[in-house]
Write a protein that binds this DNA or RNA. Sequence first.
DNA 1: TTTCGACCGTACGCTTTCGTACAATATTTT
DNA 2: AAAATATTGTACGAAAGCGTACGGTCGAAA
Lengths: 274, 274
Amino acid sequence: MPRVVWTIHHPQSDTGADDWETSVCSCPYREKAMARSPSRRIPSNHLLSALSTADFTLLQAHLIPVGLELRRSVERANKPIRHVYFPEDGIISVVAASTRDRQSEVGLIGREGMTGINVVMGNDRSPHLSYVQVAGRGQYMKADSLRQAMKESASMREYFLHFAQAFMVQTAHTAVANGRANIEERLARWLLMAHDRLDGDELPLTHEFVALMLNVRRAGVTVALHGLNRKGLVSAKRGQIVVLNRAGLETAANGLYGIPEAEYRRLTGWRTKR
Amino acid sequence: MPRVVWTIHHPQSDTGADDWETSVCSCPYREKAMARSPSRRIPSNHLLSALSTADFTLLQAHLIPVGLELRRSVERANKPIRHVYFPEDGIISVVAASTRDRQSEVGLIGREGMTGINVVMGNDRSPHLSYVQVAGRGQYMKADSLRQAMKESASMREYFLHFAQAFMVQTAHTAVANGRANIEERLARWLLMAHDRLDGDELPLTHEFVALMLNVRRAGVTVALHGLNRKGLVSAKRGQIVVLNRAGLETAANGLYGIPEAEYRRLTGWRTKR
DNA sequence: TTTCGACCGTACGCTTTCGTACAATATTTT
DNA sequence: AAAATATTGTACGAAAGCGTACGGTCGAAA
């Protein structure tokens, strides 16, 4: 396998965090929260928008809008976690590294969640690393502030723990996918997960990049993508994959997509795209 | 793939739970606990033995010794969890099922831990199932009693959450192993994990059985086992695999073994065999 | 002691994926 | 506009693993 190429072209990485305030979240939790407190400025991160007003207030002063630039390192392996991120657009991926050249994505976090699960679970580090894989924007805050807020609010702590549980299920299904699915199935699953976490249907992804995520050859992704294309499920331009038919992709994922998503729904109220 | 054959021969399954009181745990945590309260009857489950006397007292009255018979179902997918188990010998495995015939082991629990992580995390169910994969013995209690105890003791709750975190790391590395390792490497990893959780060096496992765990052909296990045998790391009889050289197996696992184990150590104090 | 089923060793053709390579095209830089 | 670079399409032999099958052996039950 060739060395990882990190100078990947990502059109989205230019946009920065300028327009984060104008973004729209159609999830019903937001409407409810709006009704509770119309003046409250609610970020489109699902966890933040679903918090009660009281809980959100505990966090509000600590949250800082931030652009998630491609490759920004969010957590390092076995180093103290200083900040946690609540993405609103873009993807942060969690990677387990057994050796330096044997890394593998084990989970993916976007607008449905947060980084720093270990902080939520009462710890300060983990052997995984995570970094921004698709540029976007979000909010972040000091890990210590989060700890303080969770100490003050049991409901917040419980809610974030629910998210952690759903994330565990995602990781488990990554293991299943790696063990028992072919490239096309895994690609379908990954595209759906990315689609859920990004604005629009056009995903700014190169084949090389997706290959990294799936731990397969770049050429393998190209071929699998042609397969999905032939079925009319996606179209592809240079550096871009367009989702045309979500339902079809779910079929193509052959049971690998859906169970973790149902857990996100059940435990945190987050709905994926339809 | 032929339908799962569950009538596997397991010598150990006869022994039942008769001798659980006589088993010895050499972990230093036990010694310490003994010193604190010499009359306290400490199970050889690591989590239980490492609890403070006060915390253990909260659980003690609820714990019931139990034989873990092969195939006993411990948790069902999406069904309320009624009991949690603290194994002392034997292996319980956690399985994610994307479809009925596409199951995959995502984690493995023995004397270092407990089932019911979801209960610890404030929930009552999970989409995974778990059942006894290698017969043994342990203690179990009602999930509600555990909830009550955790409500009364923050330190217990935190400690069990630490275990849950280490378990997450194990799951993540299962994903890595499934994605990037060959059969022999995965076999070495799995044997080490099983060895850590069972008494003695003789593991009562058939090839068919290990193949189920690793999601590979039975014949693939046979061949891989010969590879390890040729290197002098294991020997094998009918229905039994004997670990001869742990250090060698760790080398053979090629980086796939060790990181989760270090987390168990760091977060819960559990030491694997040497 | 014999019988029978569980378990293990081995083989063969097939499929998937890999590693690698090279050319063609799109985009950015000079 | 030309050059450099990034990205994609495609190909080919090699390797790993699969599905399947069959015979041999061990151990438990009759």
